[in-house]
Simulated assay, not measured.
Amino acid sequence: MNDFSAKYTSYVREQVRAKFPSCFVTTALVNSKDRKLPALYLSYSFPSPTPGTDDSSGSEVWTRTKVVAEAYSGTSVQEAKAIISVADEAFYRLGFRRSNLSEVPNADTSVRRLTATWRASVDASGTTANW
Rank of each mutant, 00 (worst) to 15 (best):
A6Q: 14
A6H: 11
K7M: 05
Y8S: 05
Y8V: 01
Y8K: 06
Y11C: 02
V12E: 03
E14N: 12
E14Y: 02
Q15E: 03
V16P: 10
R17T: 02
A18Y: 01
A18I: 00
K19R: 13
F20G: 10
P21H: 08
C23Y: 04
C23A: 13
V25N: 13
T27Q: 13
A28D: 02
L29A: 04
N31A: 04
K33E: 14
K33S: 15
D34I: 00
R35I: 02
R35G: 11
K36Q: 15
L37F: 15
L37R: 12
P38R: 11
L40K: 10
Y41A: 07
L42V: 01
L42H: 06
S43H: 11
Y44E: 04
Y44P: 07
S45E: 11
S45R: 15
F46H: 14
F46W: 10
F46C: 05
P47M: 08
P49I: 03
T50Q: 15
T53S: 10
T53L: 03
D54H: 10
D54K: 15
D54T: 04
D55A: 02
G58S: 08
S59R: 13
S59G: 08
E60I: 00
E60W: 07
E60L: 08
V61R: 13
V61S: 12
R64G: 04
V67G: 10
V67L: 12
V68E: 14
V68K: 15
V68W: 04
A69F: 06
A69V: 03
E70D: 12
Y72F: 15
S73D: 08
S73W: 06
S73M: 05
G74C: 09
G74I: 03
T75Q: 15
T75F: 10
S76N: 07
S76Q: 05
V77A: 15
V77C: 09
Q78E: 13
Q78M: 11
E79P: 11
E79A: 08
A80N: 10
K81G: 06
K81A: 10
K81V: 00
A82Q: 12
I84M: 14
S85P: 02
S85A: 15
V86D: 04
A87G: 08
A87Q: 05
D88C: 07
E89I: 00
A90L: 01
F91G: 03
F91I: 01
Y92C: 06
R93G: 00
L94G: 02
L94I: 01
L94T: 01
L94A: 04
G95K: 03
F96N: 07
R97V: 05
R97E: 11
R98F: 03
S99P: 07
S99R: 14
L101A: 09
E103Y: 06
E103C: 06
V104C: 05
V104F: 04
V104Y: 07
P105I: 00
P105K: 02
P105C: 00
N106C: 02
N106E: 07
